[in-house]
C-alpha cells in the first residue's frame, strides 16, 4: 500500500516537473510546479514528516508560487512567445549541462548501489515506528521544535538573519527613495 502511494506521488511529481519545464505559457508552468510541490508534500507525509508537508504546502505552494503567479500576471507574461533556447550556442550549452547532470546522477546511483552509503546509514539506526512514536509523544511541531531551538539554535538564528538581510536588500533595491 505504502509503495503504491509512493510510486503514485513520485510519478506525478516527475511528470509535473517535466511539464513545468516544457510548457510555453508561464502560468501553466507555474501551475505544474505547484502540482510537483503538492506531490512532494505527499512524499513527506509518507516519511512521517507531516509538519514538513504542511509547511511545504503553506510556504511554497501557498505563498511563494502565488507570488510567482502575481508577478507573471502583473508583467503579463502569461501568453509566451517562442522558446528561449535559440541558436546553436544555447542548444549546445543546454546539451552540455544535461550530459553533466546525467553523469552526476549515474555516479550517485553507482555509489548507492555499490553500498557506499550502507555503512553510514547503519551508524544512525532508526527502528521502524520510532518516528510515529515520538510524534505521538511530543506532537508534530514539538518533535521538530525541540532540536531546532535547543541543539541547533545558533545556525537557525543565523539563517533567519540571512533571510532578513535578503528582505532588506530587496526593499533597498526596489525603492529609490527610502
Amino acid at each position: 500500500m505504502r509503495e503504491v502511494v509512493f510510486w503514485g506521488f513520485s510519478g506525478v511529481a516527475l511528470a509535473a516537473a517535466l511539464l513545468c519545464v516544457t510548457r510555453r505559457s508561464a502560468v501553466a508552468s507555474a501551475l505544474w510546479l505547484v502540482l510537483t510541490l503538492f506531490s512532494l508534500a505527499g512524499l513527506f507525509v509518507l516519511l512521517d514528516a507531516q509538519f514538513i508537508a504542511a509547511i511545504q504546502v503553506l510556504v511554497y505552494a501557498g505563498a511563494i508560487m502565488v507570488l510567482f503567479l502575481f508577478v507573471i500576471m502583473l508583467l503579463n507574461l502569461g501568453r509566451a512567445g517562442p522558446s528561449d533556447m535559440r541558436g546553436w550556442l544555447g542548444r549546445g550549452v543546454a546539451a552540455l549541462l544535461g550530459v553533466g547532470l546525467a553523469v552526476e546522477l549515474w555516479v550517485l546511483v553507482r555509489i548507492v548501489r555499490g553500498g557506499g552509503f550502507a555503512a553510514e546509514t547503519a551508524a544512525y539506526p532508526l527502528p521502524p515506528g520510532e518516528l510515529a512514536r515520538v510524534q505521538q509523544a511530543e506532537g508534530a511541531v514539538g518533535m521538530l521544535a525541540e532540536p531546532l531551538f535547543r541543539q541547533y539554535l545558533v545556525p537557525f538564528e543565523i539563517t533567519s538573519v540571512l533571510l532578513l538581510a535578503a528582505i532588506v536588500g530587496a526593499v533597498v533595491l526596489a525603492k529609490r527613495k527610502i
Binding site: 509538519f51 504542511a54 505552494a61 502565488v66 510524534q135 508534530a140
Partner: peptide
C-alpha cells in the same frame, strides 16, 4: 485527526488563493 491540525487549515486556505487569482487571469 491530523497531527498537523490547524496548520492543515492555514495551508489549504493559502492554496484557495489560486482559484480566485486564476479565475481573474
Amino acid at each position: 485527526d491530523l497531527p498537523v491540525g490547524f496548520l492543515f487549515i492555514i495551508a489549504i486556505s493559502s492554496v484557495a488563493v489560486y482559484g480566485i487569482t486564476l479565475a481573474g487571469w
